[in-house]
Computed example of a mutant assay.
Amino acid sequence: MIAFVNIQAQRDAYREELEKAEKAVLDSGIYIGGPEVTALEAELSAYTGTNAVTCASGTDALTIALSALGVQPGDEVVVPDFTFIAPAECVARLGATPIFADIDPHTLQISPESVESLVGPLTRGIIAVNLFGQCAPYAELRQIGKSHGLWLLEDSAQAFGATQCGKQACTFGDMAITSFYPSKPLGCYGDGGAIFTANKELAQKARMLANHGSEERYLHKVAGMNSRLDALQAAVLRVKLAHLNAELKARKAIAERYNAFFANIEGLTPQQIADGNTSTYAQYTLLVDNRKDFVAALDQAGIPHCIHYPMPLHRQPCFAELAARYAENAADMASQKAVSLPMCAFTPIDEIIERLEKVF
């Protein structure tokens, strides 16, 4: 059976390193914080050239970053309409209102033109999502933020390791986040996340918020939360981080094989990678004119697939009261056409291509 993301093959490849690292943590008796977490944060900071603060999940990372940026009830925050719910969800849980920007129909990234049209007197910031592994159009987004006095938060949950014009993801916003969910390009064996910022004061505030609002034991400056990455996950991530660049090369090669196969098939368009971008290919996603028949062919070939995402966020039931202001848009198109195929550094692309050749 072909796995959508072959985490087991990755573990087999690094088994000796992983088991050594895991045993060291279990034998140490230090399971929360400690040297493994400190070392991981230093390595993440070195990789990105910024300040990294780990936490318990990518969703927590968004909540912490938004809190550090000062989001208050009544504020408005522009988010992409076509993505996972977490950015909009975290805005709403802080009492603010997500405002849904449309996407570029080719790259599937947030549209700067749409963002610009949505800025109003209550707008405080922009969340840009590096969807499916490539960076959003940050030059344009930064200019919009600068002209309107808005902060910019980079959601790089799918794109740690990607670059834009030679600059690493997680460095484009006032703050940035990533997720270490197991299926991510850099994933642990549970939930995990990190916050990044070049601003040391924001980094300090994020660390405090993640630790019950405390910098000193039993002294709480603000009402924070409990969001910590445990030492075992940090040890796993340190092993995987050492292999990340090699895995990203493998992912790119697999994406190129997919591209070559689908190039001459009508009605199928791979997500376009924007000029200047590299992608982690967290997903390999196609826009398919006849998705029903395409999915049926994949099922016939025994190739797993996933629909990312079946509806734009403004149509989700939890945002029903906001939906009336939005017309049908490119996000609707993407939700009706997008299909993702198996992708990781260990995807058996030769076997997949052989199976595809039998049904297309």
Rank of each mutant, 00 (worst) to 15 (best):
F82M: 09
R257M: 11
D293N: 15
R257V: 13
T83C: 12
G34N: 06
G149W: 15
P105Y: 14
L108P: 01
C165S: 15
L356C: 14
E215S: 11
I64V: 13
E19H: 12
A9T: 01
A198P: 00
P304R: 04
F262R: 01
D289A: 15
M333W: 05
A46Y: 11
A324V: 05
Q143V: 09
T197R: 08
V79S: 05
D12Y: 05
L287R: 13
A3F: 02
R11A: 00
M175L: 11
L356W: 07
Q164I: 04
T50H: 06
G95F: 03
T285K: 00
E321V: 13
D350Y: 03
N226W: 14
N264S: 14
N329E: 08
L287H: 11
Q272C: 14
M225F: 07
M208C: 08
S227F: 02
G193R: 05
I349R: 01
A136G: 09
R325V: 07
Y189G: 09
A203T: 05
D75E: 03
K20Y: 03
A136C: 10
D299N: 14
A139N: 06
R228W: 02
A88V: 06
S45M: 10
S45Q: 13
D81E: 08
Y14M: 12
C318I: 13
G49L: 06
Q204V: 10
S114E: 09
K23D: 13
V5N: 06
E16Y: 07
